[in-house]
């Protein structure tokens, strides 16, 4: 009715390379955002003052560190998980800044709306918690997973199969898909309302509906900032929970 011309999805998530076409180091917008997700936290940490009485940027930096400690590690693992702080903090920062570019003008693209980064992070999470399990419990980790002692003998092959599938396939798959799909859905939602705003703006008398669509766009932008934070938090929290289940596999 409005002549809504929706762009093909390839135009929304696939970006041309700046250089290195066909090579592994081909750099496109996603790569730029990944690099920025590296640079921004680094600069924030380096620039922030180190004073006994914090202020300004130092508050934010220490708040992030304390948030990971108090809200992610302590509830999920406990005090013995504090040595995983660098990993979880890096995951949180990298995902959060990758997501945040969803609402930053001139980018308007979350790096995690492409499968590459979520897949890598989920596989990293898998490697981390499996290696922690082997380190803490040796081969018994695999044995306890595949042949769980807490169920009747008759059920053990079935439960063991489910457990193996859960630990080695479903967890990383769900981690990657959760992050990827949330960010892609948010991106498509923002694009939809952006396109709708333009269509309404150029559609004659229907322009009176513009405040509604634009207000919705603004609200969704705020919501997507929240989702960016929430997904980074959930990813770090779930990784912590999986690490905990490797440390203490006593169901």
């Amino acid at each position: 009715m409005l002549g809504l011309e929706y762009p093909p999805i390839e135009n929304l998530v696939e970006w041309p390379n700046y250089f290195g076409d066909g090579q592994i180091w081909a750099l496109n917008k996603i790569g730029i955002i990944s690099l920025l997700a590296l640079i921004i936290p680094t600069v924030m940490f380096l620039v922030s003052k180190k004073e006994l009485v914090p202020g300004g940027l130092q508050n934010i930096v220490e708040g992030v560190v304390e948030f990971i400690e108090e809200q992610v590690i302590m509830p999920a693992i406990g005090a013995q998980g504090l040595k995983y702080l660098p990993l979880l903090l890096t995951m949180f920062l990298f995902i959060f800044f990758g997501n945040l570019f969803e609402v930053i003008p001139t980018f308007h693209m979350p790096a995690n709306a492409r499968m590459a980064n979520p897949l890598f992070l989920a596989l990293l999470s898998l490697v981390v918690y499996v290696s922690i399990g082997f380190k803490e419990h040796g081969f018994a980790f695999l044995k306890d997973t595949a042949w769980p002692g807490f169920v009747p003998v008759g059920l053990r092959p079935l439960v063991g199969l489910i457990e193996l599938l859960t630990v080695f396939v479903l967890r990383p798959f769900a981690l990657a898909v959760r992050l990827f799909a949330n960010m892609l859905a948010g991106h498509i939602l923002l694009v939809t309302f952006g396109v709708l705003c333009i269509s309404v703006f150029t559609a004659g008398i229907i322009v009176i509906l513009l405040p509604l669509t634009f207000g919705m766009l603004v609200l969704l932008t705020a919501f997507e900032i929240f989702v960016s934070f929430l997904q980074a938090f959930v990813f770090a929290l779930l990784t912590a929970v999986f690490i905990d289940s490797s440390l203490n596999p006593a169901h």
């Binding site: 180091w25 996603i30 660098p86 890096t90 790096a111 492409r114 980064n117």
Partner: peptide
């Protein structure tokens, strides 16, 4: 997933992890 994007992602993440682990934190 696209290989080149993953390459830059892995590069950035690893660099950020090492920085956080040894320099920033």
């Amino acid at each position: 997933p696209s290989g080149s994007e993953m390459f830059w992602g892995i590069l950035s993440f690893t660099a950020l992890y090492l920085l956080v682990r040894f320099v920033l934190l």
